[in-house]
């Protein structure tokens, strides 16, 4: 089980959280202007790296707030957590 450091509550068990997938996916500014291919890309395609991944978590059984994390999907190590709206931190 992951131990996830909620930015507000501190480290808590994964079972308290809800997963939100890839972070920093913005809704298209003008969806009607997109081609089918661009729309498909927004709707269905998400990054799936073996390595560092910026992702969303919600502390549903705690403060109930969303936040972002950078986790290595090859090791499950969490390198950073940060609040929604903040830029993705650079991991050396």
């Amino acid at each position: 089980m992951l131990l996830i450091p909620c930015p507000w509550c501190g480290p808590r068990d994964e079972a308290e959280f809800h997963y939100g997938g890839q972070a920093h996916v913005a809704y298209p500014e003008d969806p009607a202007a997109l081609s089918d291919e661009e729309w498909a890309r927004y709707l269905f395609f998400r990054d799936n790296p073996k390595g560092l991944f910026a992702e969303r978590w919600s502390h549903t059984a705690g403060c109930r707030r969303w936040f972002n994390a950078v986790r290595d999907t090859a090791t499950n190590e969490i390198h950073a957590v940060y609040r929604v709206g903040e830029p993705r931190p650079v991991i050396a």
Binding site: A15, Y19, N48, E55, R71, T73, A74, T75, N76
Partner: peptide, 10 residues
């Protein structure tokens, strides 16, 4: 729930 390439789960 979370993406991972580790062959183990919670």
């Amino acid at each position: 729930a979370a993406n991972s390439y580790r062959q183990r789960g919670a």
